[in-house]
């Protein structure tokens, strides 16, 4: 789990991780928001259902795949937060939206 340091880096952008609202510094990524929110897992793998959290934070490992603003399997560590962004953990393989 990670903690903020508000003095040098004020948390100004409000995002939602799961249902919880959270403020994070500008320039943070969705993956950082997940770590700050203290989520136990950002996804469960489609292979064995094992829980995962971000590992590399730089776009290499793809362990941070999450649903962001309704779009599944986005690399959360490569997505910069925007006000109101919704980040949801994923369980197993994604679904595709047929009605879309």
């Amino acid at each position: 789990m990670f903690a903020q340091r508000p003095d040098p880096r004020p948390a100004t952008v409000e995002v939602f991780v799961g249902d919880a609202a959270l403020r994070v510094p500008e320039g943070s990524t969705a993956a950082a928001a997940v770590m700050l929110a203290g989520l136990p897992a950002i996804r469960e793998t489609p292979v064995n259902g094992s829980p995962r959290l971000p590992y590399c934070m730089m776009g290499i490992c793809f362990d941070c795949l999450a649903e962001i603003d309704g779009v599944a399997n986005r690399q959360a560590c490569m997505v910069t937060v925007r006000p109101g962004m919704r980040i949801a953990p994923q369980h197993g393989a994604r679904a595709a939206r047929m009605s879309a």
Binding site: P46, N73, G92, A93, R94, A95, A96, M98
Partner: peptide, 9 residues
């Protein structure tokens, strides 16, 4: 071309 895994469709 191969996509990511998706639920059975």
């Amino acid at each position: 071309l191969v996509t990511e895994r998706t639920q059975n469709l």
